[in-house]
């Protein structure tokens, strides 16, 4: 067994997978030879993903106070001054319950990892101008949003060492193994339920939520 086979077997991966990678491994050279090898600079420019263990976090640091400034200029218009969310834009702060009729997941009560905030803000925010913030500004914004949620104190400084150590309140709130199938219905064909129990409990009839389904879109109709 080759070393690669041992690795994959140890990882619990199947034989189909072993076969899939065996060819390349045995030859030790690419089969087709198309394309080029990216330079370290090319890889570094695009490899922006950050993991919970901190892998991928760049140098730099930012405080809650600095973050407040960035947030007011770059974020508050959509997310609200206190992270309450304007219109349908995401609410960022809040420690409400995750149960009941209308739970409101936020960074503070839902997000399991603080590192994800850095990854997401750095890659996708501000919404109209992604990748326009410096690493320092991203760290500062992360610190500010965490503080808005009372996850870190006002003197917190976010950097590549401190962020992976932040313990989010909902860190253990997720099941990462798919428990489905979690319904076990039978394909019954006759007399599957009592006819008198068949009762409409909700209808879309009379509700005014449905946009036009014929003709042009609502937004293209003359006013």
């Amino acid at each position: 067994m080759s070393s690669l086979h041992r690795v994959l077997a140890a990882a619990g991966l199947g034989t189909a997978l072993l076969a899939a990678v065996a060819g390349a491994e045995e030859r030790g050279a690419p089969r087709y030879g198309y394309g080029t090898v990216p330079t370290p600079e090319q890889i570094a420019g695009w490899a922006i993903a950050v993991r919970p263990d901190g892998q991928g976090l760049p140098p730099g640091r930012g405080s809650v106070e600095q973050g407040a400034e960035v947030y007011m200029q770059q974020c508050a218009a959509c997310h609200g001054t206190f992270g309450e969310g304007e219109g349908r834009y995401p609410k960022l702060a809040g420690e409400g319950s995750l149960t009941g009729e209308r739970p409101e997941p936020t960074v503070g009560n839902y997000w399991p990892f603080a590192t994800t905030l850095f990854d997401y803000i750095n890659r996708a925010m501000p919404f109209p101008a992604p990748r326009s913030l410096s690493a320092e500004e991203v760290y500062a914004t992360v610190a500010y949003v965490l503080n808005l949620n009372n996850v870190v104190p006002a003197e917190f400084v976010a950097d590549r060492d401190s962020l992976p150590k932040v313990r989010m309140p909902n860190r253990d709130g997720f099941l990462w193994q798919d428990p489905r199938p979690d319904t076990h219905e039978q394909a019954c064909m006759q007399d599957c339920r009592k006819p008198e129990e068949v009762r409409i409990v909700s209808t879309a009839e009379g509700k005014t939520l449905t946009p036009r389904t014929t003709g042009p879109l609502d937004t293209e109709m003359p006013q």
């Binding site: 993903a49 263990d53 995750l98 839902y110 997000w111 990892f113 590192t115 997720f174 099941l175 798919d178």
Partner: peptide, 29 residues
């Protein structure tokens, strides 16, 4: 290991009645 990106933690996870959430529920049944 997985990256636990925003789209697989904050979004595309499912809140259960007990307030816990399911993640990495990829297949469409």
């Amino acid at each position: 290991q997985p990256w636990f990106t925003r789209e697989e933690t904050s979004k595309y996870t499912e809140l259960m009645p007990d307030g816990r959430a399911r993640g990495f529920t990829w297949p469409l049944y």
